[in-house]
Protein backbone atom coordinates (compact mmCIF):
# COMPACT_ATOMS: atom_id res chain seq x y z
CA UNK A 1 0.00 0.00 0.00
CA UNK A 2 1.19 3.48 -0.84
CA UNK A 3 -0.29 6.56 0.85
CA UNK A 4 1.09 9.86 -0.37
CA UNK A 5 0.90 11.95 2.80
CA UNK A 6 1.81 15.23 1.08
CA UNK A 7 0.17 16.32 -2.13
CA UNK A 8 -1.76 19.28 -3.49
CA UNK A 9 -4.53 20.14 -5.86
CA UNK A 10 -5.29 23.38 -7.64
CA UNK A 11 -7.37 26.00 -5.88
CA UNK A 12 -8.92 29.26 -6.95
CA UNK A 13 -6.11 31.29 -5.37
CA UNK A 14 -3.15 29.14 -6.28
CA UNK A 15 -2.56 26.62 -9.02
CA UNK A 16 0.16 23.99 -8.82
CA UNK A 17 0.03 23.37 -12.56
CA UNK A 18 -1.49 19.91 -12.30
CA UNK A 19 -5.12 19.06 -13.00
CA UNK A 20 -6.84 16.76 -10.51
CA UNK A 21 -7.59 14.16 -13.17
CA UNK A 22 -3.92 14.04 -14.21
CA UNK A 23 -2.80 13.75 -10.59
CA UNK A 24 -5.06 10.76 -10.01
CA UNK A 25 -3.93 9.19 -13.27
CA UNK A 26 -0.26 9.62 -12.34
CA UNK A 27 -0.91 8.18 -8.88
CA UNK A 28 -2.59 5.15 -10.42
CA UNK A 29 0.37 4.53 -12.69
CA UNK A 30 2.74 4.70 -9.77
CA UNK A 31 0.41 2.50 -7.70
CA UNK A 32 -0.26 5.16 -5.11
CA UNK A 33 -3.48 4.19 -3.37
CA UNK A 34 -4.33 7.43 -1.58
CA UNK A 35 -3.34 11.05 -1.98
CA UNK A 36 -3.50 13.29 1.11
CA UNK A 37 -3.90 16.77 -0.36
CA UNK A 38 -4.31 20.37 0.66
CA UNK A 39 -4.76 23.77 -0.92
CA UNK A 40 -2.66 26.20 1.12
CA UNK A 41 -1.78 29.83 0.51
CA UNK A 42 1.96 29.69 -0.21
CA UNK A 43 2.35 33.39 0.58
CA UNK A 44 0.33 36.12 2.21
CA UNK A 45 -2.22 36.04 5.01
CA UNK A 46 -5.46 34.44 3.85
CA UNK A 47 -8.67 35.63 5.45
CA UNK A 48 -11.20 33.15 6.87
CA UNK A 49 -13.26 33.55 3.74
CA UNK A 50 -10.23 32.67 1.62
CA UNK A 51 -9.11 29.61 3.57
CA UNK A 52 -12.69 28.36 3.73
CA UNK A 53 -12.83 28.61 -0.05
CA UNK A 54 -9.65 26.49 -0.26
CA UNK A 55 -11.27 23.87 1.97
CA UNK A 56 -14.54 23.94 0.01
CA UNK A 57 -12.53 23.11 -3.10
CA UNK A 58 -10.66 20.40 -1.22
CA UNK A 59 -13.93 18.79 -0.10
CA UNK A 60 -15.21 18.85 -3.69
CA UNK A 61 -12.15 16.90 -4.82
CA UNK A 62 -12.63 14.40 -1.97
CA UNK A 63 -16.19 13.82 -3.16
CA UNK A 64 -15.07 13.45 -6.78
CA UNK A 65 -12.54 10.75 -5.87
CA UNK A 66 -13.82 9.21 -2.63
CA UNK A 67 -11.19 7.15 -0.86
CA UNK A 68 -8.52 8.24 -3.31
CA UNK A 69 -8.26 11.94 -2.50
CA UNK A 70 -8.08 12.71 1.22
CA UNK A 71 -7.98 16.30 2.39
CA UNK A 72 -6.17 18.33 5.01
CA UNK A 73 -7.91 21.41 6.34
CA UNK A 74 -5.82 24.52 5.68
CA UNK A 75 -6.20 27.45 8.09
CA UNK A 76 -4.46 30.66 9.06
CA UNK A 77 -3.81 30.54 12.83
CA UNK A 78 -3.91 34.34 12.90
CA UNK A 79 -7.71 34.03 12.74
CA UNK A 80 -7.95 31.86 15.81
CA UNK A 81 -11.66 31.41 16.39
CA UNK A 82 -12.49 30.97 12.71
CA UNK A 83 -9.64 28.50 12.32
CA UNK A 84 -10.73 26.40 15.27
CA UNK A 85 -14.31 26.27 14.04
CA UNK A 86 -13.15 25.46 10.54
CA UNK A 87 -10.93 22.57 11.66
CA UNK A 88 -13.65 21.07 13.84
CA UNK A 89 -16.30 21.33 11.15
CA UNK A 90 -14.14 19.97 8.32
CA UNK A 91 -12.85 17.02 10.34
CA UNK A 92 -16.02 16.00 12.13
CA UNK A 93 -18.59 16.78 9.45
CA UNK A 94 -16.70 16.44 6.18
CA UNK A 95 -14.12 13.80 6.89
CA UNK A 96 -10.94 15.78 6.50
CA UNK A 97 -7.93 13.89 7.82
CA UNK A 98 -5.89 16.60 9.51
CA UNK A 99 -4.62 20.15 9.42
CA UNK A 100 -2.22 21.76 7.00
CA UNK A 101 -0.22 24.73 8.24
CA UNK A 102 1.96 26.73 5.89
CA UNK A 103 4.33 29.66 6.41
CA UNK A 104 1.95 32.30 7.76
CA UNK A 105 3.44 31.79 11.25
CA UNK A 106 6.30 29.78 12.64
CA UNK A 107 4.80 26.82 14.42
CA UNK A 108 6.69 27.77 17.59
CA UNK A 109 4.59 30.96 17.75
CA UNK A 110 2.00 30.70 20.56
CA UNK A 111 -0.66 31.86 18.13
CA UNK A 112 -0.51 28.35 16.63
CA UNK A 113 -0.97 26.49 19.91
CA UNK A 114 -4.80 26.47 20.05
CA UNK A 115 -4.87 24.80 16.63
CA UNK A 116 -2.48 22.14 17.88
CA UNK A 117 -4.65 21.55 20.95
CA UNK A 118 -7.64 21.09 18.66
CA UNK A 119 -5.81 18.43 16.60
CA UNK A 120 -4.97 16.56 19.80
CA UNK A 121 -8.63 16.65 20.78
CA UNK A 122 -9.68 15.41 17.33
CA UNK A 123 -6.79 12.89 17.10
CA UNK A 124 -5.66 14.12 13.68
CA UNK A 125 -2.19 15.05 12.44
CA UNK A 126 -0.75 18.41 11.47
CA UNK A 127 1.26 18.58 8.26
CA UNK A 128 3.59 21.51 8.88
CA UNK A 129 5.33 23.17 5.93
CA UNK A 130 9.00 23.35 6.93
CA UNK A 131 12.52 23.89 5.80
CA UNK A 132 16.01 24.83 6.87
CA UNK A 133 16.97 26.93 3.88
CA UNK A 134 20.71 27.55 3.86
CA UNK A 135 20.67 29.82 0.85
CA UNK A 136 19.95 33.37 2.09
CA UNK A 137 17.97 34.30 -1.00
CA UNK A 138 15.75 31.25 -0.60
CA UNK A 139 15.32 31.88 3.12
CA UNK A 140 14.37 35.52 2.60
CA UNK A 141 11.39 34.48 0.48
CA UNK A 142 9.83 32.72 3.47
CA UNK A 143 10.69 34.64 6.63
CA UNK A 144 8.16 32.69 8.70
CA UNK A 145 8.96 29.20 7.50
CA UNK A 146 9.17 26.75 10.39
CA UNK A 147 12.22 24.56 10.70
CA UNK A 148 12.90 21.37 12.62
CA UNK A 149 13.80 23.34 15.71
CA UNK A 150 10.40 25.08 15.74
CA UNK A 151 8.70 21.76 15.21
CA UNK A 152 10.72 20.05 17.90
CA UNK A 153 9.79 22.82 20.35
CA UNK A 154 6.11 22.55 19.47
CA UNK A 155 6.23 18.78 19.86
CA UNK A 156 7.79 19.13 23.29
CA UNK A 157 4.89 21.35 24.38
CA UNK A 158 2.28 18.96 22.98
CA UNK A 159 3.59 15.41 23.37
CA UNK A 160 0.22 13.98 22.34
CA UNK A 161 0.14 15.89 19.06
CA UNK A 162 0.97 14.09 15.84
CA UNK A 163 3.12 16.47 13.86
CA UNK A 164 4.49 15.78 10.40
CA UNK A 165 7.48 17.82 9.25
CA UNK A 166 6.87 18.39 5.56
CA UNK A 167 9.14 17.49 2.67
CA UNK A 168 12.49 16.24 3.83
CA UNK A 169 13.41 16.49 0.14
CA UNK A 170 12.14 20.01 -0.32
CA UNK A 171 13.14 21.85 2.79
CA UNK A 172 16.81 22.62 2.36
CA UNK A 173 19.38 20.99 4.63
CA UNK A 174 17.70 17.67 5.36
CA UNK A 175 20.60 16.32 7.41
CA UNK A 176 20.23 19.26 9.81
CA UNK A 177 16.53 18.49 10.18
CA UNK A 178 17.16 14.83 10.96
CA UNK A 179 19.71 15.68 13.65
CA UNK A 180 17.28 18.07 15.34
CA UNK A 181 14.33 15.68 15.22
CA UNK A 182 16.20 12.57 16.24
CA UNK A 183 15.00 12.66 19.84
CA UNK A 184 11.56 14.17 19.29
CA UNK A 185 9.43 11.07 19.23
CA UNK A 186 6.04 12.53 18.31
CA UNK A 187 7.29 14.10 15.08
CA UNK A 188 7.06 12.24 11.80
CA UNK A 189 8.95 13.33 8.72
CA UNK A 190 7.53 13.14 5.24
CA UNK A 191 10.00 12.21 2.53
CA UNK A 192 8.48 14.29 -0.26
CA UNK A 193 10.09 16.92 -2.45
CA UNK A 194 12.15 17.02 -5.59
CA UNK A 195 15.47 16.47 -3.81
CA UNK A 196 16.51 12.84 -4.10
CA UNK A 197 20.01 12.88 -2.63
CA UNK A 198 21.17 9.28 -2.70
CA UNK A 199 21.46 8.08 0.88
CA UNK A 200 18.79 10.42 2.25
CA UNK A 201 16.28 7.71 3.13
CA UNK A 202 18.90 5.38 4.58
CA UNK A 203 20.14 8.15 6.87
CA UNK A 204 16.60 9.08 7.88
CA UNK A 205 15.89 5.46 8.80
CA UNK A 206 19.14 5.28 10.74
CA UNK A 207 18.51 8.47 12.73
CA UNK A 208 14.72 8.46 13.16
CA UNK A 209 13.69 4.87 12.47
CA UNK A 210 11.38 3.81 9.66
CA UNK A 211 8.42 4.08 12.05
CA UNK A 212 8.66 7.87 11.89
CA UNK A 213 8.93 8.29 8.13
CA UNK A 214 6.00 8.87 5.79
CA UNK A 215 6.09 8.58 2.02
CA UNK A 216 5.07 11.72 0.16
CA UNK A 217 5.58 13.38 -3.19
CA UNK A 218 4.58 17.05 -2.93
CA UNK A 219 3.82 16.51 -6.64
CA UNK A 220 7.36 15.29 -7.42
CA UNK A 221 5.83 11.98 -8.31
CA UNK A 222 8.64 9.86 -9.75
CA UNK A 223 11.12 11.35 -7.31
CA UNK A 224 8.85 10.59 -4.36
CA UNK A 225 8.33 6.96 -5.26
CA UNK A 226 11.80 6.35 -6.68
CA UNK A 227 13.75 7.38 -3.61
CA UNK A 228 11.84 4.93 -1.41
CA UNK A 229 12.12 2.11 -3.94
CA UNK A 230 15.84 2.66 -4.43
CA UNK A 231 16.85 3.08 -0.79
CA UNK A 232 18.95 0.32 0.75
CA UNK A 233 16.50 -0.51 3.52
CA UNK A 234 14.56 -3.62 4.49
CA UNK A 235 11.27 -4.47 2.79
CA UNK A 236 9.59 -4.16 6.17
CA UNK A 237 10.86 -0.59 6.58
CA UNK A 238 9.87 0.21 3.00
CA UNK A 239 6.36 -0.99 3.70
CA UNK A 240 6.14 1.13 6.86
CA UNK A 241 7.26 4.24 4.99
CA UNK A 242 5.14 3.69 1.89
CA UNK A 243 1.86 3.37 3.74
CA UNK A 244 1.66 1.48 6.99
CA UNK A 245 2.72 4.37 9.23
CA UNK A 246 0.29 6.80 7.60
CA UNK A 247 -2.50 4.24 7.71
CA UNK A 248 -2.08 4.03 11.47
CA UNK A 249 -2.12 7.82 11.80
CA UNK A 250 -5.32 8.04 9.74
CA UNK A 251 -7.01 5.35 11.77
CA UNK A 252 -6.03 6.78 15.16
CA UNK A 253 -9.10 9.00 15.44
CA UNK A 254 -11.41 6.01 15.06
CA UNK A 255 -9.78 4.02 17.84
Amino acid sequence: MKIDCHSHINGRFFKWGVELKNLVEAADKLRIDKLCCSIPFVEGMPTPSEFKTCNDEMVRAMKEYPGKILGYCFVNPGYQQESLEEVEKRVLEEGMIGVKLYNQYKCSDPIVFPIVKKTVELKVPILQHAGHLTDPAEASRQPNISDARDISYLASLFPEAVIIEAHLGGGGDWEWALKILRNTRNVYVDTSGSVIDCGMIEKAVKLLGAERLLFGTDLSMEEGVGKILDAEISEHDRSLIFGENMRQILEARFR
Partner: peptide, 11 residues
Protein backbone atom coordinates in the same frame (compact mmCIF):
# COMPACT_ATOMS: atom_id res chain seq x y z
CA UNK B 1 23.81 9.07 -9.66
CA UNK B 2 25.38 8.86 -7.08
CA UNK B 3 24.44 12.40 -6.14
CA UNK B 4 20.85 11.29 -6.66
CA UNK B 5 18.95 8.03 -6.49
CA UNK B 6 18.70 6.10 -9.76
CA UNK B 7 15.22 4.67 -9.57
CA UNK B 8 13.38 7.96 -9.99
CA UNK B 9 14.81 8.39 -13.48
CA UNK B 10 13.92 4.80 -14.35
CA UNK B 11 10.32 5.47 -13.31
Amino acid sequence: FPLKYLQSAIL
